[in-house]
Write a protein that binds this DNA or RNA. Structure first.
Length: 106
DNA sequence: ACCGTGACGTGTC
DNA sequence: TGACACGCCACGG
C-alpha cells in the first residue's frame, strides 16, 4: 500500500466523532498536490471498517462518496448516528462541524 | 506510452 | 449565485 494512502487513512481516523472534514483539507495537510488524491485514497478505504470515511465530505458538505459505500444511504446513516444532521445528502451546519487536520498542530 | 476516469477545488463568466 | 472549464495526479485498460 502506498504511503500517502495510509496517511490519508490515518488522518481520517483522527477526525473527531461527530465532526467532518473535506478532501481538500486532507490533501493540503499532507501536501498531496491535489484534492483528487485524497478522494481517490478514500475510495481505496472502501471495505475497511476501521476508517470513518463517512466523516469526509467535499467542500460544500455534500456526501459525494455515498455511492461507494455498501448502500447509498449508509454514509448518511453513519453520520446521523453520530449526531450529524443530514439534509438532501448535505451536512447541516457544515461550517460549524467542519474540522481540519491542522487543528492537530495547535 | 497514451487516454479516460474520478469520494475535488478554484477561478471565470 | 450558479453553471462550466480547467488544473490536479495516480491508476487501469
Amino acid at each position: 500500500m502506498a504511503r500517502y494512502i495510509e496517511d490519508v487513512h490515518d488522518v481520517a481516523r483522527l477526525i473527531p466523532k461527530g465532526r467532518v472534514t473535506n478532501y481538500g483539507a486532507i490533501a493540503d495537510f499532507l501536501t498531496l498536490g491535489s484534492a483528487r488524491m485524497a478522494g481517490w485514497a478514500m475510495n481505496k478505504a472502501h471495505g475497511d471498517e476501521t476508517i470513518p470515511a463517512h466523516r469526509v465530505v467535499n467542500r460544500k458538505g455534500e456526501l459525494s462518496g455515498r455511492n461507494s459505500f455498501a448502500t447509498p444511504t449508509l454514509m448518511q446513516e453513519l453520520l446521523e448516528a453520530e449526531g450529524v444532521e443530514i439534509s438532501a445528502s448535505k451536512v447541516v451546519n457544515f461550517k460549524e462541524l467542519f474540522w481540519s487536520p491542522t487543528e492537530l498542530l495547535k
